[in-house]
């Protein structure tokens, strides 16, 4: 895997919204996870499946991403992202809060929340706020990849191509 295509937002690395080598025809996934290894695991797995992956390291960075994406809204949905996967408990802002905020602008993009705190209340709250699914850790990585593939295929003729 070509690491230069990665766009990671960690405190010690540069933040880039549009790195080189970005494939405009691929489906984009935005992952927000504060555990570094977990984030890398998810991102690398989805890249293998053919997705372009953006990584956010905490709630504030996720917010920054959402702010950027607001500027790209077309027909009521973010133009530059096809799926959002977010941890719930992160420093900065809770995944649930960010979900509530982004749902004001985009009601279509699937948002998947993952969490180690799997109690009923959290699950109910997630669906109420507009999550498409909430998954308890630890989960089977292959099942996760299959789920993402089923939700939004890596490339599809149905969704509009992006023109850069």
């Amino acid at each position: 895997m070509d690491t230069s295509t990665r766009s990671s937002i960690w405190l010690d690395e540069e933040f880039e919204y549009e790195p080189q080598g970005w494939d405009p025809n691929a489906r984009h996934v935005l992952i927000a996870e504060d555990d570094r290894e977990m984030c890398r695991l998810l991102a690398d797995s989805l890249r293998e499946d053919g997705y372009e992956v953006m990584e956010a390291s905490d709630g504030q960075h996720l917010r920054d991403y959402i702010d950027y994406l607001r500027g790209t809204i077309v027909n009521g949905r973010f133009f530059d992202v096809d799926i959002i996967v977010s941890d719930i408990r992160m420093p900065g802002a809770s995944g649930l809060e960010v979900l509530r905020e982004l749902r004001r602008y985009d009601r279509e993009t699937p948002v998947i929340l993952i969490t180690a705190f799997g109690d009923d209340q959290t699950h109910a709250e997630a669906y109420r706020l507009g999550a498409s699914a909430i998954i308890d850790k630890p989960f089977d990585i292959d099942g996760f990849r299959a789920f993402i593939r089923q939700l939004v295929p890596p490339s599809s003729d149905d969704l509009p191509r992006r023109a850069y």
Binding site: D35, E37, L41, K137
Partner: peptide, 17 residues
């Protein structure tokens, strides 16, 4: 303890696979 173990275990499992 279980909560804390969830994430690292996820990573171990996936990498082992």
């Amino acid at each position: 303890v279980a909560h804390e173990l969830g994430t690292p275990l996820n990573v171990v499992w996936a990498k082992a696979k």
